[in-house]
Structures are given as C-alpha cells and as structure tokens.
Design a protein around this nucleic acid. Structure first.
Lengths: 336, 336
DNA sequence: AGGGTTTTTGCAGAGGTATGCAAAATGCCG
DNA sequence: CGGCATTTTGCATACCTCTGCAAAAACCCT
C-alpha cells in the first residue's frame, strides 16, 4: 500500500556509485565527470528518480517557496497579478504558496503559518503589516515585499504604482475637459494606495484652481461605491467623479446609468484606477489609470530575489508610473 | 548574518527535557503529562519556537501542501474558486501551492515539479490530464481531483457541475419563451464541460422539437466569442444564443449591442454559464446557469481529504446541480 | 616514467523532527 | 509499604539530501 519513494540512495546502488555522486549530479555547479553524470542520469531515468525538494531545503535552508498573502481575489487586478507573479517565479524555479487573509483579521496567525513552511520570501498583496510582524519576519530572515500597498513606517521593500502622480493625471484630465463640479470616491482610507490617489487628485485640482467638492470613502467595495454614488448625485450633483479603482467605477457607472438614468460621460464623467481587462470592454469603456501589472510583478520578483540572494541588501521601494488610458467614460472635447 | 533557527533541541535544553518530549507536545495525540506540556510550551513561547513543517514532512511523509494546477485566471470563476479552495484547505491545515500551466502546453513538466514538492494531493482545474500522467501520480501515491473538467477514460476523481442538465435547462428556458431561431456558442470542444453543455442543450431542444440552427466553438475565449457572434448574426440571424460561459456571454452581449446595434433581450436573448459575480451587475444582468463554486469546492476538498486519509478509496465523481438564474438578458414573457 | 596539479569521488556528518522501544515514574490497591 | 498496571519519558534511529574534507583518480609536463 505505502508507496516507497525512490531516493538518491536507490539510484546510487543501481548505478554502483555513492549517494553523494547522485546528489552532485542534481546539484547545478557541482563537480561531476561526464561519465559519472551519464551513468547516474541513466539510472535515475530508469528508476524515475527526482530529488525531494523538501529534504533538500532542510539542508540548504532554501525551500524555493514564496508565501503570498492576499486578502481577496474579487478585484480582477489581483488574479491578474497573481497569475503573472506565479509564472514569473516559476521561471526562476520558485513557487507560490497561497495564504488567504481577511482585511482586518490579524495577520499574525497567517504569517506564523507562512514561516512554518520555511518560505524563502513573502509577498504581501494589499494587506498592511504591523511593525511587530515585520520585525518577526526580519528576525526569521525572511524578505518581505509589499505589493500594491505602501507603508510609511516599517523598513519594508515595496512595489506600488505612482498613485499620487496617477491622481494628478486624472485631475488634469478633468480640468482640461472643463469640468467644474468634481468629486472623488476614494479607495479605502486605511490604505496608502487609497490615500495617495486621493492626495494626488486633490493636489492636481488645487493647482488648477478647481475645487474638489467632496471625497467619500468607497472602501474598495462594490456596494459602498454604489451608495456613495447615490449620495453624491443626491447631495452634490458632480459632473465628474474619480473613483479609486476600476471595480468601484463599474459599480458607480451601473448606478448612474441604470438606477439614476444618467448618461456617462454626457451627464457625469467617470474615471477609474487599475485598467483591468474589463475596463476596455464596450459595456464600460472606462477611462482609467493603468497599473502596469506586468512591470509591477517584475519589480516584485526582482526585489524579492535580490534580497534572497543578498540578505544584507537594504529594502528598496519601487514606484511604477502608469499612463491615463482615455476611453469613452470621459468626453474627449477640451473646453477652453 | 545567517539567522539561527530555533529548533526543538533548543527548546528541550531550555526546558531541561528531551527533544522527544518537545516533539510530542507539538504532535496532537501524543502522550505527554500536563506538567511536561506546560513546561515545554513555556520554553517554546520564550524562544519563539514553532515546528518546521518541512522537516516534519520528511519523516511523516505528509507535507500538508496541495498542488493546484490552473491554466488561467482571467475567467472570474477560477479566482473565485481558488479563493474558496484556499480558505477551505487552510481550515483543514493544508495550503495551496500554485502551478500555472498553459492550455495545450504539456503538463508533464508541471506535474513533475509538483511531485518534487511532495504534495499530499493535486487539484487540476480546467486542465486535462493524459493517462500517462494520471498513472504517474497514482504510482507516486498522490490523489488527484479534477475540478470543473471531466474526463472519461482515466479513473480520476472529479468534481463538475451538472453541465448536461444545465444545457437542458437553458433549452427549456428558450423553448418556454417561444424562441424559434436558436444558436449556441459553445465552450471549447476539447473540454468535456464544453461538450456536455452543448450536448445537454441540443438534447433539450430536440426533445421540444425546436431546431438548433448552429453551434460555433468559442474556445472559452473572449475574442473568439465576439467573432462567433458577428458571424452568427450575419449568416444565421438567431433570436436566442446560449453561450458556453459567462465571460464569452459578456463578449457576445457587447458585440450585439455596441457593434451591431441590437437590443438584448428584445432582438436576441443571451444566456451564459457560471454565474460569476459580474453576471448580476446591471450592465449585463445576465441570465445564466449557476455553477455553485462553494459546493464544488467543498466537494473537492472532501474528495481530496478522503483519498489522503484512505489511499485505497476508489476515486469518486461528484456532479453538482446548479439552477438557471433568470435575469434581464432573456425576456420574462412566456408565449403559448 | 615520475612528480606535481587539478579534478573527481566517497565518507561521514548535519539539517529538524517523529516514533518504536525500553526504562523510569506514577498511580492504585490491598 | 510492596507489587503490579499504567502512564510518561528518554534514547536512538530514520527520513532524504547536501557538502567539507580527505583520499583517489586523472591529467600534464618535463
């Protein structure tokens, strides 16, 4: 019943060599003669041997596992990023072990579990980390990269898009189109991404001398965004709304069109943030600031590997700029 | 620089007991006195000790890792399922190691890599497995569960929704609404899910004596679905289209409305399959057959754990029925 | 051929934990 | 308090691989 695994010892016996020799054949960069390599590989092939990654990690101290903490996958941006991240790491010989956490729930337990697996590094996507946790990861020698969520305090590596600049781009776009009544449904105020986008937007409007009539926290939630839209249209009556991410922007557009009977962009212009695949679909055709998932993921992998190779390297912060993608949810005409 | 890990040996010395004692404290069901437990836990706490999952797995033969193979995450159904799967397994003390593969690409390399990690089981989502691969997993004693993709030949455990029945439900719905010109843009013909939905749909129409004018393979791809819709409207002019999944249905609706200027459901009724979150959004308001991700995931976990506990258990197949969810993309009125 | 260099190989120990077995400790009862 | 049954503990070994070190082999050059 029990399945006997094929071990390097078995291969060694079959090939009539020592176990060390087998190990060396499967260790890149080790010293093995051509002849030895051929013999061992033949035996390994015959027996169907492959090194046990876990046993190997025990001695090398490298598991080739990266822990990923993520709170939810219903914002399209995250599956997209996860897919790319997984592929990129796979190409480097690493694999992603997934840990779901809930916003608000204490990360402690989750991080402990991650560390139990002796991961080589941790990517925390859209979750914030307490200083205490960061300290513990440092103590364990595990590099952490925050993905798409900045943090002021802790000395953590992080990759974000240029959220502040993005907010300014949206402001400039609204101003150029001549909008006067402008509002913002922000990303969760507890997140730096949300705050930065809002801050950049406010800055940009201020610089142009156009007032920002109202900011409502949409908490990155579909339902909250819809409520915010209803309230804004009842109380403020803006003619342009910048929404903190695409998913909320879709919610806002649906509310405007199907519940309030308004036209986008003629009655209200809407801009989102992320540029997920759906933003380009005709039903929404959403003007939005692109977060270049591809480049963000590449930067994340780079940072992670850098710190795995060189644990002494200081944690860096990388910010990636993304363009404003103009589509039909904002009008093209520029008023003078 | 190098971070000395805290081991059970360290805890043992600190507590003045043997290493075995420490091990037993952290092994559920082992024999330890109250006093011993308290002492060890105190020392463990003081030193910040937690058992090394990898070292443990070396001796128990259980890694508490489940390998997940998935081809793409851009169909919303999969991130949804992945999130639930990960949470459900987490609750059972397992974790998901992600392996991205590409449709068509040979799974061989991927499966080998999975096995290298000594996973306790494998979930293959929307990928088909060759008999050879299935054989190899069996040889390695690793249970495999196919998620949302059936397969006739191999004796593999699998969880699917009742695709055939689902297809019939759609047929009945169209027939009841009095549609006469009916077409189908199917899921990829190379997948059993796609074939079953199409077969059920055809059966249902045949039983009602309504012809199925055309079937086009949409390959589960957004762009292919749009092309299929253009072609159908040019050549066949159906008044009702059943589309093999929601994502393709969205594409079809967009093409009908924004490219061809047709109204849904007045000119053409559209039905999808999956009931992803977006299907309920007002912009689409799509009638669709629900795949109960929750129950499908629960069944998957059940099957997996069952076979991990009892390797001799025969692989079972579970089919989960889902309702037709009526929404605005099909008309309500039933003609006599 | 011989001596020195370099390469290749095997030996043995380590990495962190679980567990069968025997010894020690505890509990029970008369 | 003695004797026996039961529980708890420690010892030693196993899991599978990598790697430093020293021995063996191969190579090179005169």
């Amino acid at each position: 019943m029990s399945v006997r695994r094929v071990t390097s010892q078995d291969v060694a016996e079959h090939a009539g060599v020592s176990q060390s020799a087998v190990s060396r054949v499967f260790t890149p960069g080790a010293s093995v003669s051509k002849k030895m390599e051929a013999r061992v590989r033949a035996s390994a092939e015959a027996l169907g041997y492959r090194p046990n990654v876990l046993a190997r990690s025990l001695i090398t101290g490298r598991s080739r596992i990266i822990g990923l903490v993520v709170a939810y996958l219903d914002n399209q941006f995250y599956p997209e990023a996860l897919e790319r991240l997984s592929r990129a790491l796979q190409a480097e010989g690493y694999h992603v072990l997934v840990f779901m956490s809930r916003e608000g729930e204490d990360l402690d337990e989750v991080i402990q579990e991650i560390l139990d697996y002796q991961v080589d590094g941790i990517v925390a996507a859209s979750v914030s980390m307490s200083d205490e946790l960061a300290r513990r990861c440092r103590a364990a020698g595990k590099p952490v990269v925050l993905f798409n969520r900045g943090q002021e305090d802790a000395g953590l590596a992080q990759v974000t898009s240029a959220n502040r600049a993005g907010g300014r781009k949206v402001a400039a776009h609204f101003v150029a189109a001549g909008h006067k009544r402008i509002a913002h449904i922000s990303g969760w105020a507890g997140s730096m991404t949300g705050r930065d986008r809002a801050a950049g937007f406010a800055e940009g409007l201020k610089a142009a001398g156009v007032p920002l009539l109202e900011i409502v926290d949409g908490e990155y939630r579909w339902e909250r965004a819809a409520e915010a839209a209803r309230w804004l249209m009842a109380e403020i009556k803006p003619d342009a709304i910048f929404v903190g991410n695409d998913v909320m922007a879709f919610s806002v557009m649906d509310t405007l069109r199907f519940e309030l009977g308004l036209r986008v962009p003629q009655d209200v212009a809407v801009v989102g943030y992320d540029d997920v695949a759906m933003a380009a679909w005709p039903a929404y055709d959403l003007t939005t600031v692109r977060q270049p998932a591809d480049r963000m993921v590449r930067a994340t992998v780079e940072l992670l590997l850098e710190r795995i190779e060189t644990p002494s390297a200081a944690p860096r912060r990388i910010e990636i700029d993304g363009p404003l993608v103009r589509r039909g949810s904002t009008s093209a005409e520029v008023k003078a």
